[in-house]
Each structure stands twice: as structure tokens, then as C-alpha cells.
Design a protein around this nucleic acid. Sequence first.
DNA 1: CGCGCTCCATACTTATCCGTATGGAAAGAT
DNA 2: ATCTTTCCATACGGATAAGTATGGAGCGCG
Lengths: 206, 206
Amino acid sequence: MDEESSILFRMETNTTKPRTQLDRDAWVHGATEVLAEEGIAGLRVEVLAKRLKVTKGSFYWHFQDRRDLLIAVLQQWKDGRIRDIIKQTTAEKGNELAQIYHVIDVYSASRSRRGMMIELAVRDWARRDAEAAAIVAEVDDVRLRCARDLFLACGVPMEEASSRCMLLYAYVFGVSLMIYEKFDTDVARLKRDIANLIARSAHAVT
Amino acid sequence: MDEESSILFRMETNTTKPRTQLDRDAWVHGATEVLAEEGIAGLRVEVLAKRLKVTKGSFYWHFQDRRDLLIAVLQQWKDGRIRDIIKQTTAEKGNELAQIYHVIDVYSASRSRRGMMIELAVRDWARRDAEAAAIVAEVDDVRLRCARDLFLACGVPMEEASSRCMLLYAYVFGVSLMIYEKFDTDVARLKRDIANLIARSAHAVT
DNA sequence: CGCGCTCCATACTTATCCGTATGGAAAGAT
DNA sequence: ATCTTTCCATACGGATAAGTATGGAGCGCG
């Protein structure tokens, strides 16, 4: 190679972007972001590849097909949810009521918007897919049992504890579906009062 | 036309299926069914046409494009919801508490599954479309106000009425997202108890 | 009956999407 | 440095989907 060709070779090399290398996890993370923004239907291989600044060659190296990715996303969601549930519902003795309020707050806060969007997307998927439904059922069961344990620890009787924990989760999911900003002049007070309706039992030791 | 050709002509005519003629409403109804079953992403022109046993020629005569159909579906949903809300929350004097229980029951019953699936699909759409969101906001507002009026008529103070009616709707939507059959041995009792938590106020005149 | 209008079937174009095959770039090991 | 393995880019094929254009079927009316 003479000098002129060597210079041209290097100029081309300098303007060539190095090839991005992603691991499987990067794909799952990217997919989860798209899931939050656009739901399951928005999770498309080529669109996601473009978003991650690679092509689908990478995708098909890491995953057998689109469903393989979806299942990986779902599994990661489940693991994360169960880990969080256990963390959120592990209370110091005597702090159970405060923890109940904390759970309600965490799920109904605006800052949890992305997490809730993923939650809703996963549940939308679960309505039409048996495997997704099984995983949602598992997460729901863990959640309800952990939250019920908090109510029980407050001295609430078993049946009432069951009702309240279920109301708790139904409320936080349901409210994330609704558009209510114009309904009341003080939404923060409204949410606080609702948390009180859910959390406070005549039986609870405070 | 000689006699043999005339017979052949009539045989062909007899086996030719008469052309189906649909009005715009038929399309909107069909679309709403698909929406319930498959959500917004499942609402595709050619697939819907096939389901209605016509081709997309009919569709494009009645609608400008797919969005035109979606908006029509949404408008029909809104009109139906508002009509139902007013019917459901119109109580005979002294029957307001029973009506509250009725509303909770109607929305959380298994027989309302299809209606709830449409509701969830519309809300999924509204999360990503401003026009859909505006209509959902309108429906939510009407619902919350009508239900609040029921609580007020029971003697519940304004702020508590606001909290309870919002909890009511959040609960019924939320619970439709959840998978809880294995959580409790008596789901019917669970739901009854939750309805009691929502509906019964210390202030209410029974 | 003929004519006009409403309505639908079909062919066509363009774009997107998924999955497969193949070549080669980049990283790791020796 | 070379060789092997991991990983990605791209071309390709087939299917689906939306929207447009055109011809004609069917209905309604005088």
C-alpha cells in the first residue's frame, strides 16, 4: 500500500462508526422501554433495532424470534416485581400501617408512571396470552399475600385483610387508567383520603 | 341467447351469493367487537372486512380511513357509556345506597366482561392518543359526578363522597385487570366485602 | 323500463414487518 | 500474529396492511 492509499484508507476508517455490540440484557431493557411507551403492539424487531442503533442481525443472534424477546421481557418484569413487592412489604415491627400507606403511595404516584405503563401493557398482553396470564397471576398472588400479611400484622381479621389488600391493588391499577384531574380541585387530598379509606380499619392497632 | 346458454346463465346466478350491503353502523358494531377481543391493534380494515363478509371497498365507501372508523367507535362508546351512567345512577329517592351497590355489581360482574374489555381497550388507546384521552376524560367526569351525587344523596359529606366514588371506579377497573382466583377460597364473599368497604360510610343514612 | 345514486369488489401501489441465509467484523484465546 | 468464536449487517422472500383507483352491482325513483 503506497502512502496516498494508506491515507485514504485511514480517512475512511475514521469516519466509519464502530459497530455497536449489545448483550441480551440491553435488548431486554430497550424492549421494556418501548413496552412502556407503546404497549405490546409497539414492540417490533426492526423498530427496536433502529432505536438501539443496530440492525436486526444482533437481535436474531440473541433471540430465536420476537416471542423469545417478549418472554424474556416478561420474566424480567416478574423478577423485578416480586423483588420489589418483598422489599415494599417488609416492615419493621410496628410499622405495618405506615408500610401500607407507603405501598399505596408508591403505586399511585406520578413518578411511578413508567412502571405503571409497563404494568398495564403486561396486563393487556396477559388478557390474550396464557403464558403471560400465568405470570401475572403469580405476581398478583405474591402481591396480595404480602399486602394481606401487612394488614394481618395490624390486627385486621383475615377476611377483612383479604378485602383490603385486594382493594388496595385494584385501586392503584384502576386509578392509573382514569383521567380525573378536573374532577376535584385538590387531587392530592383526594388520594390521601382514599388511602385512608383503604388502609384504616376499625380493628387496626395504631 | 339460446336455450343452453340461458340455462347455464341461470345456474351461475343461483350459486352467486348476493352482495352483502352494510351500513356505517354495522361497521362500527363489528369494529367494537374486535376491539373487545383484540384491542386497538387488532382493529385492521381488511381483517374486519373479512369478518363482516365483505371486502374493504365497503369500508372505504363509509369511512375516510382507519382513524375515521376508530373515532366513530370511540364516539359510539362515549354515547353508550354516558347513557348507561345516567341510567345506572338514577335512583328512586331513598334507594341511593342500593344503587351504589348496583353500580359496583354491574361493573365487577363476570357478565360484563365484554363491556370491560372495550373499556380497557379504549383506555389503552387513550394513553397514547389525545383525542381518545379527551373523550375518556369526559366519560370519567360524568361517571364520577353521577356516582358522587349518589353518595351525597346518602348523606355522605362532599369530600368523602368524592373519595368514595373515585375509589369505586378505580376499584372496578383495577379488579378487571387482576388475576386473583387462587387468592381466596370465596371470591364472591371477597367482592361483597369490598363493595361494603366502598359503599358504607359512617355518615350514610341507611 | 332507464337513469342516477349508493355501495361494494377487486387490482394495484407502497410500506412495514418477521424470519432466514450469508458474509464478515470484532472480540477472545493462544 | 493467527485462529476461533461471538456477534452484527445486509439481502432476500413472503405476508400483511393501509390507502387509491376503477368498474360494476344493486337499489331507488320517475
